[in-house]
Design a binder for these strands. Structure first.
Lengths: 340, 340
DNA sequence: TTGTAAGCGTTATCAT
DNA sequence: ATGATAACGCTTACAA
């Protein structure tokens, strides 16, 4: 028993393929009699229009892709990304769009982009965004970049990364800390923070700015950067590593709450008191941050809002290819809690 | 400037469409000379095979759909689901599959299923699984059901819901609690827990079993069920509601950790001590549960493993349509922490 | 190694 | 209100 097609229904109902198509897409064009007859036959044979064929013809998939910088398992572990997804979902609901998660294929985003059957892309915190942009443009597909460096002529949604990082570090140094470990996010420029781009770059800049105001700097002996896998375990490992050395910081500034929370766990295990022995501040304000003990000071960024805004921007472009590209920057906010 | 197709490349390179197709899919079939020429031309014109057209012809999309029982924003808020997704992602990586998140469209899963361009589905905690199964079968698409009632002839992955629920409630009653509030998950059978199916049904059964052993029962005056939206806020609201009444439980058993954590927040705000005044136990063991204060007793279920197993099962079916349907049940485990 | 030609299952255009 | 027919852009026997 091979696949039932529109053709089968047409024959069986004694009408043309056009009519069958109408029955599903523009029922109002059909007389009630034929409509019900067609639907009846379709139900009998268990027919439904093939979405792929339909996609090909209409050049629409009803589906937007989120281009992920890392494999799905890593992404799913990051609460902040999930909050972003929440916003995306909210914006998609009204338009009945589905969301395709597009991680790198065999390590290559290029492949992944070229194979994804979607109407448009959201890119999330790309490092290699120059190259990726190229591929996206080549596919001639609308896209909105989130957490990358703004680019002329392309819609971008960002948060005030530098301002937030400045606020975090300022908070720390203004409390007198002068021995500071920064838990960074491991990236393609591993070991070379000077080569950072996008979000990472701006955050480092913000940290540097606040450090500079008290005569410190990342090159300095007393300010150290560790680049971690961006999950709880990454932060956990980082703290243990830091504490295994002779040099101990009096404060830890993490580029993500997940890292801070991991560090907190390690600290607890090692009997290191937070905030007495080490002050700790994160970035993101994920929902766990207010729940942990001690509660985590952090920089709140509107992750969900970011997802929502990026998605509505994309949808606008989807509907009107000539919509003006937007550059949007969302505000962040220092949240002081117990960990600092 | 219209879309560049395989035809254009063929003409420009002076070869047939076949050869161009080979260049991208079976390069080894081509002489080095023609291969490079074709690729050269393709690069020049910025051509890449259209995935949708390719999907139609090959009847493969390289994409599996996760059928979600609720809108995406709700799902994204649930850490447990995200852990599941982590497992799905892990299993997809090797096969270069993407994941399409398929929430109900205009409230209807049916519509969503029929429009999704995927190779197979994972269903997640469906309540109306009878009807949904029907639609899935109609589409003739492989699928694996997760967290539903097992069905003959269809692969299902479940956890030992009843055993876990029994363990949770047993833990509570064995500590002497006789006034108990259960925070349930709001479902289609709202207000009628006797109509529950699937996971909810089995958990309720497990609770009942343990309650029965000490002469209690859900119908009882001192065992109350509240049905909550399954997120932190839902648990928060529920606790406030419970505490606003004259009747106060000495223990709260939540069907999900997110609910328990929400309740914990409300308790803190109201100055209610956990576990002194109320003992609290959850279900799932999401990552936040070990981090909150007091840390949350719960039933650990292998969410990620569930995702991984379900996905590999689906992949097996994808590769061999005649693979034996599997019924898999994963174990759970009581985790005693401070909240009880 | 490369070319020819027949689909894949729809939708869209233009008639009638 | 309904039908004939040509796309949509690609893959794949089969032939050369």
């Amino acid at each position: 028993m091979s696949r039932v097609t529109i053709q089968d229904i047409a024959e069986r109902a004694g009408v043309s393929k056009t009519s069958v198509s109408f029955a599903f897409n523009k029922p109002e064009q059909l007389s009630e009699a034929t409509l019900t007859r067609i639907l009846e036959v379709a139900r009998e044979l268990g027919f439904n229009p093939d979405p792929i064929a339909s996609n090909l013809k209409t050049r629409r998939t009803g589906c937007i892709g989120i281009l992920l910088p890392q494999p799905l398992p890593v992404i799913a572990r990051n609460t902040h990304t999930m909050a972003f997804l929440e916003g995306v979902g909210a914006a998609c609901q009204d338009e009945d769009l589905s969301v395709l998660l597009v991680p790198p294929q065999k390590g290559s985003l290029r492949r992944a982009i070229l194979r994804a059957a979607v109407d448009g892309f959201l890119t999330l915190g790309l490092e290699t965004f120059r190259e990726t942009m190229q591929v996206l443009k080549q596919r001639g597909m609308p896209f909105v970049m989130v957490d990358s460096d703004p680019v002329e002529g392309i819609s971008c949604v960002n948060i005030d990364d530098q301002g937030g990082a400045y606020a975090a570090m300022h908070h720390i140094v203004s409390r007198g800390h002068r021995k500071i470990a920064i838990l960074g996010i491991r990236s393609g420029s591993f070991g070379h923070y000077r080569d950072y781009a996008g979000t990472l770059r701006r955050r480092i800049d913000g940290y540097q700015q606040a450090l500079g105001e008290v005569g410190l700097s990342l090159g300095n002996r007393n300010v150290r950067l560790l680049e971690c896998e961006c999950d709880i375990e990454g932060g956990y490992d980082a703290f243990r590593e830091v504490w295994s050395k002779r040099w101990h910081p009096t404060a830890i500034v993490a580029m993500a709450d997940v890292l801070a929370i991991g560090a907190m766990q390690a600290a607890r295990e090692l009997g290191v008191d937070i905030p007495q022995e080490v002050a700790l501040i994160g970035y993101d304000d994920i929902s766990a941050s207010s729940l942990v003990c001690p509660s985590l000071s952090t920089i709140r960024q509107p992750a969900m809002e970011k997802g929502r805004v990026a998605t509505t921007t994309l949808i606008r472009t989807l509907k009107d290819a000539h919509a003006e590209p937007q550059h949007i920057v969302l505000d962040v906010q220092l949240v002081e809690r117990q960990s600092s």
